[in-house]
């Protein structure tokens, strides 16, 4: 796929054509992925009350950027929704609020804390991971606002269960994913239809890899929360991962706290998201590290998926993203 931007037209028409053509070719893969995601996002006009899941993390930042492009110069016809576990990094929440305001979109935040107060979520302990509880709060928010379509930044390269999910993932009234009853998904002719009470989860980044996301962040010069890049942080070594030390995640008695240069590859609940050692100071550096990484994104950073081999599958069956 080729695009000739107006600014590059001159070069294309002049003696510089060869060079410019080469740079266009180099963009081909990201252009294709972007065009596909924009196409998927424009399919959302079918729904009465769609919302885009926006945590302030890198995938949702890419998703928001794509949504702004898809509907430019108009505003995307959906709200932003964040299910806050109450254990998020403050700088990520700041970034979330700032980006939502810049985009001029309504931001709805619902917290797991509220579900705990209501009694619809009970945690084993105060510091237990709240990832599983997110599904409950999500469904409650969905009912409260009557959202019929939720857009997520999940990618198929992240995890085994995700690799089997459709772009338009149909959910019943309980938000449950039924892998055996998935609708066939042909060409780009998506089946968007819902019965009353059902809803759709939509994943425009399905075909992106972690490297694609970083290449796109670099190309589009997208802002991200600073903790995606190298910074010094107190950590302990736990179960082969670096575990961040914060107020709600203190070290255990036998653990030695170290201060290391780290960055986060994913940003989720503090109690189960771990950084990796890194000196990468910008998106280009991270892209290089990603291309030479030897441990997958979730494997390196997510304690919740390591609980057992089917952890993600089970959470999805219960309505998780």
């Amino acid at each position: 796929m080729r695009l000739a931007y107006d600014t590059e037209r001159g070069a294309l028409m002049s003696g510089g054509a060869l060079e410019t053509h080469a740079s266009l070719a180099a963009m081909a893969r990201l252009d294709r992925l972007e065009a596909e995601a924009v196409y998927i996002l424009r399919e959302l006009t079918h729904y009465a009350r769609p919302a885009l899941m926006f945590s302030g993390g890198k995938d949702s930042a890419v998703l928001l950027h794509l949504a702004l492009k898809a509907f430019a110069p108009a505003k995307p016809p959906f709200a932003l929704l964040h299910i806050d576990t109450g254990h998020n990094f403050p700088e990520v929440l700041e970034f979330r609020d700032q980006r939502a305001a810049e985009a001029g979109l309504k931001l709805v935040v619902r917290g797991v804390e509220e579900s705990i107060r209501r009694g619809s979520v009970r945690l084993a302990s105060e510091t237990a991971s709240r990832n599983a509880a997110q599904a409950v709060t999500l469904l409650e928010a969905q009912q409260e606002f009557q959202f019929d379509a939720l857009i997520g930044g999940a990618r198929r390269d992240e995890e085994k269960a995700r690799a089997k999910e459709r772009v338009f993932s149909h959910r019943d009234a309980f938000g449950a994913w039924r892998p055996r009853a998935q609708r066939p998904e042909l060409w780009g002719l998506y089946n968007r239809h819902l019965a009353a009470g059902e809803n759709m989860r939509i994943f425009p980044l399905s075909n992106w890899t972690e490297a694609d996301v970083w290449a796109y962040i670099a190309r589009e010069k997208l802002a991200l929360p600073a903790l995606y890049y190298t910074h010094d942080r107190d950590v302990v070594r736990r179960d082969g991962l670096l575990f961040p030390i914060t107020e709600i995640t203190p070290p255990r008695a036998d653990e030695r706290v170290e201060r290391l240069p780290v960055r986060f590859r994913t940003v989720g609940d503090i109690t189960c998201t771990c950084p990796v050692e890194s000196f990468a100071a910008n998106a280009e550096d991270v892209l290089l590290e990603t291309l030479t990484a030897s441990v997958s994104e979730r494997g390196a950073t997510r304690m919740d998926d390591r609980a057992n081999a089917a952890a993600m599958e089970r959470r999805k069956l219960e309505g998780y993203f």
Binding site: M1, D6, A35, V38, R42, K69, A70, A72
Partner: peptide
């Protein structure tokens, strides 16, 4: 237009306005 910006040419696969 592609992503809000004007283009001189776009072909199969491109999402345009």
């Amino acid at each position: 237009r592609v992503g809000g910006a004007g283009v001189a040419y776009a072909e199969v696969g491109a999402s345009v306005a």
